[in-house]
Design a protein around this nucleic acid. Structure first.
Length: 263
DNA sequence: ATGGTAGCGCTGCTA
């Protein structure tokens, strides 16, 4: 199974690129974030024509997540289910079962600034994600979370930690909240396959030629339960998809993260 | 130098 995750920064603006990318890379399951797409406007028919089922959770101009699969798509759960949580109103989580794997498309809140209310909401959302895992799946089974976590797990996951003093994405409480999620029993697949490297980065700011200068961050992650992580045969970030060539539309500011799994 | 770019949608917010 080829599993991929991609923050597309508007599915409407990225339709052509996403369809081209699917045709070129043949993901069996593609997890999307920042679709900025209400469920009523989700292009399920376009994915269907490519041979994929889909499930979406979006309400309009911000956020929005989806799962696209050609190996089955059942037991869909949007958001945090029936649990009433103040931080769960936004469309940032959807999960389903695809070919025996429980997959979660995750879009962690940005947090904006450390001294803002949004930073606390980010930490609360991550605690709710851990509770969601405890309530809905088993780390002894095949489980995968893919998405934009808006956290760089280590200093080497940003281009220059000196530029991040006092900023979100690298603070100790955020990293601790991520570790609490992973303590469910999850492995950072790309990091495990690239143990000695910085990055590989998955996001670069649109501004200031950051991609060209290599000023990126590794904030898009695939986290797998131990039984699923044992099936990993390869993992990479597709930097090509971040380039602007060959299309009238801009690329997303995120690159897809791809993980290949043995049966 | 408190900038810069993209998306949404039409004003300024979010990232």
């Amino acid at each position: 199974m080829r599993l991929a995750t991609w923050n597309v920064n508007s599915l409407k603006a990225r339709r052509g690129r996403v369809e081209e990318w699917i045709a070129e890379h043949g993901p069996d399951v593609l997890l999307l974030q920042e679709t900025k797409c209400a469920d009523a406007a989700f292009p399920a028919g376009a994915f269907s024509q490519l041979g994929y089922e889909s499930a979406c959770h979006g309400d309009g101009r911000w956020n929005g997540v989806a799962i696209v699969s050609r190996v089955g798509l059942t037991k869909v759960r949007a958001g945090f289910g029936d649990r009433v949580l103040s931080a769960s109103a936004e469309c940032r989580l959807i999960s389903a079962e695809c070919d025996g794997v429980r997959v979660y498309s995750v879009y962690v809140p940005n947090g904006r600034a450390v001294d803002s209310e949004y930073y606390g909401a980010k930490l609360e959302w991550l605690a709710n994600l851990r509770a969601e895992l405890d309530a809905t799946c088993d780390p002894a089974a095949a489980v995968a979370l893919g998405g934009d976590f808006n956290i760089a797990p280590e200093d080497r996951d940003v281009w220059d930690i000196g530029e991040f003093a006092g900023l979100t994405h690298v603070t100790a409480p955020e990293r601790e909240a991520l570790r609490d999620v992973m303590a469910f029993g999850l492995v950072d697949v790309v990091r495990r396959l690239h143990p000695e490297e910085a990055g590989p980065f998955s996001w670069w700011d649109y501004r200031g030629g950051a991609f060209h200068k290599g000023e990126g961050m590794r904030i898009d992650l695939v986290l797998a339960s131990a039984p699923l992580a044992a099936r990993v045969t390869g993992a990479f970030v597709d930097r090509e998809a971040r380039k602007g060539q060959g299309s009238e539309r801009q690329p997303s500011d995120h690159a897809p993260v791809v993980v290949d799994l043995a049966p």
